[in-house]
Design a binder for these strands. Structure first.
Lengths: 230, 230
DNA sequence: CTTTGTGAAATTATTCACAGCA
DNA sequence: TGCTGTGAATAATTTCACAAAG
């Protein structure tokens, strides 16, 4: 039920940033905001903000601006985070453990219900109140818990196999932290995050300046931030 | 010495992906590749690949394709990863510790020389052979080690203060994992990665499909993957 | 007077398509 | 023949600018 018209890909990324900013403002006691103010903090034009939102309906009040709470509610529905999502993590290495312990995920609506690893020495250990299970249990646990999202935190070599297993188990979306490009069924969504790529973007930007003048901001793609949210 | 002409922002992100793919192929024993093959795996047209590379020079051989090693060398120079970078991490929580232990960073040319935290109970603990230092030491250590990059892994509330401290200490680039938009001097590069934003992109993509048909791939910005590298 | 929503214009990025080299 | 590099064409995205609403 989202939109009218076709939504530009960049718009989707900005919606999350709008939501994050609005939630911060609501906490700070602000109940009203206009497109200029919202654009300012994200380095966007006011027109950009209005156009992004207009793809999904009319949320503003001419002469007034936007009601922060109203807009938050709308954005949550648009992004699909007006309800909670269950997820599983595959890989209990550094990244998997950090994700498991990252309280912010839960606060933002994502419940990690299980973590798996293929290494027998890790199976049975506990991370943030959850016991690491053998990957063999993946299919059964995903089905039983009805988890719809899988987070891949395994080495590049096994990432595709894990993705296949997650898809077989029925997940609808995959967040991939392995530095590999994964092939997924077309009815499965995938977003990837590669820290090395982010660091290389940074190295490139720094190198550029060291050479000729000129400024650069970069957004890191997945999860990228919004920095340079354009 | 980089480019001729102005480089599209999306091109920069793809360069890292080309490099990652090429390194994998070289390891697999492939010494030659053409734009069609390289584009295929990243879901890009062959023209896109050629155009991206052509911004920086002539690396191909008509009728033949590209020499993998030659292209890797060129891409490393372009991206600024033909030499090593020293970095410091601020924040020894889940994310900071995971980054510190993430061996891949070192393998890709980034040496984390120190990690800091404001929490006295964490100071002195060891993570991957490195002792957590008090943030008060930040300026001195950054200067002494000549670190040029700072990784921010602290809560959103303290992220801006940490960014300011890093800039004062002289870093030229910041990789920000805090869910906050940071303001930086215009001669400092910044790339941000927000896992919640990536997860929301995923939730949005899944929700879209559940509604109307249509496929979506998403790249997560920072680090994003390359998935849907278009 | 302020601020939204939105066509029209401008800008940016991608794809086409082909001349030229191996 | 196979494939690169690139100008020209097309498509996507952003910005402009203004009518309408509070």
């Amino acid at each position: 039920m989202p939109a009218r018209g076709k939504i530009p890909r960049p718009t989707i990324k900005r919606l999350s940033l709008y939501l994050r900013e609005l939630e911060g403002r609501l906490t700070g006691g602000e109940h009203r905001i206009n497109s200029r103010q919202l654009g300012k903090v994200l380095d966007l034009t006011d027109a950009q903000v209005r156009k992004d939102l207009a793809y999904f309906g009319q949320f503003g009040h001419p002469g007034i601006g936007y009601d922060v709470e109203e807009l938050i509610t709308a954005l949550r529905r648009i992004l699909g985070v007006d309800h909670r999502w269950r997820a599983v993590i595959v890989g209990a290495g550094n990244i998997g453990r950090a994700l498991m312990s990252y309280g912010r995920l839960r606060r933002r609506g994502f419940d990690v219900v299980a973590i798996f690893d293929a290494d027998p020495t890790l199976v049975g250990t506990r991370i943030a109140e959850t016991t690491v299970q053998p990957v063999e249990h993946l299919a059964a646990v995903v089905r039983r818990s009805d988890a719809r999202i899988g987070l891949i935190a395994v080495p590049a070599e096994s990432a595709q196999a894990v993705a296949d297993a997650l898809m077989d188990a029925g997940v609808q979306g995959i967040l991939n932290f392995a530095p590999a490009r994964l092939t997924v069924a077309k009815d499965v969504a995938i977003v990837s995050v590669d820290l090395s790529v982010s660091l290389e973007q940074l190295a490139f930007s720094i190198s550029l300046r060291d050479g000729l003048p000129g400024s650069t901001r970069a957004d890191a793609g997945a999860d990228t931030e919004p920095d340079d949210a354009r």
